Amino acid sequence: MRVVSVVSTKGGVGKTTVAANLGGILADAGLRVLLLDLDSQPTLSSYYALRHATAAGAYELVALNLTDPAQIISTTVITGLDLVLSNDDQGRLNTLLLHAPDGRLRLRNLLDTFRPRYDVLLIDTQGARSVLLEMAILASDLALSPITPEMLAARELRRGTLKLLNELEPFRHLGIAPPPLRLLLNQVNDIKSDTRMIMRSLRETFSGASAIRVLQTVIPDRVAYLNAASLGLPVHRVEARRLVGRSSTSALETMQALAIELFPDWHEIVSSMNGRPED
């Protein structure tokens, strides 16, 4: 099971949209996907309609070590896409983990239960520095950080997300290395010259970094992503073909490229998708 946390210490960069759509395309490709919503504002938990909702969720998983799938895993209307609901609206988990001896390693120690059941676990996190965010990162094989092409977002990346990852380096002494970081340019309007400048600067900044890489895939600022969220559908189902008169890629092609870049082992099954599956 691959574990990917979608992270940023800055809110409003599109973490939930990326997690929901990445999970949707992987599930439609035939993979078994589990979404874990660790954001106290449960946007991911309400993105897709549910076939079955459990009473327990992320709070019971983390606070009580409850791993029984029948009690904590809800099923969405997307075949192959399951969800652990966010149910910590009062933010109690951060306080609990802060005082627990295994706080930052709690999730990592619980994941073996889910490995036989799923191909990938996608974790949506809070848009702020927290123990909960650190726990998610330390449980992950890969951290994916959406970044919008604006100067403030680029500055926050350095003083927020990158600083956090650096401060997790001491866990290497326990045999736990912070995961490699992939930066995803999101909500990109390719018309603006300052957008192109920031994108170029980010790529140049991290061109020689071994653990940090700016992905080649770029998520455009398109109404299709808003429409998909309104409909509760993966965006690749909403825009499966290029619009007439537009040379840029469709949402299906964009999400395929992202999935393949993150999971090259699944290139064949993801690239073979060309339509909406029957649920």
Rank of each mutant, 00 (worst) to 15 (best):
R115V: 15
N274Q: 13
N186G: 10
E169C: 04
F263N: 15
N21A: 13
Q187R: 13
F171A: 01
A70L: 03
R237T: 14
D124E: 03
L181Y: 05
L184R: 01
A153M: 04
A29V: 14
N21G: 10
R2T: 05
E150Y: 07
Y225R: 01
A259K: 02
L152F: 10
G30Y: 03
L22Y: 02
E239Y: 13
S40W: 02
A229D: 03
A53F: 01
S74L: 12
A136R: 05
F263W: 09
R196H: 07
L164N: 05
R155A: 09
L83R: 04
P264M: 12
L81H: 03
L157A: 04
L185C: 11
R92I: 13
A229E: 11
L168F: 06
T67N: 06
R129L: 14
D28N: 10
E134S: 07
G127S: 05
S46V: 11
A128R: 12
R106M: 13
L83M: 13
M151T: 12
G30N: 03
R246Y: 14
S247G: 15
G175P: 00
M255V: 09
L142H: 03
H52A: 08
V3N: 08
I269E: 06
Q41M: 07
R172K: 09
I260N: 05
I219S: 00
A20S: 06
L105Q: 05
R129D: 15
A29T: 13
L61D: 08
L138V: 09
G23T: 11
P170W: 06
H267D: 10
G14F: 03
R246W: 14
A58K: 02
A29R: 06
A224H: 08
A58N: 08
L36N: 10
A251N: 07
R155K: 08
T205W: 08
T125V: 07
L107A: 03
A154H: 01
A251V: 06
N189Q: 10
R172Q: 08
K192S: 12
V188Q: 00
D88C: 09
A19V: 13
N227I: 06
R51P: 01
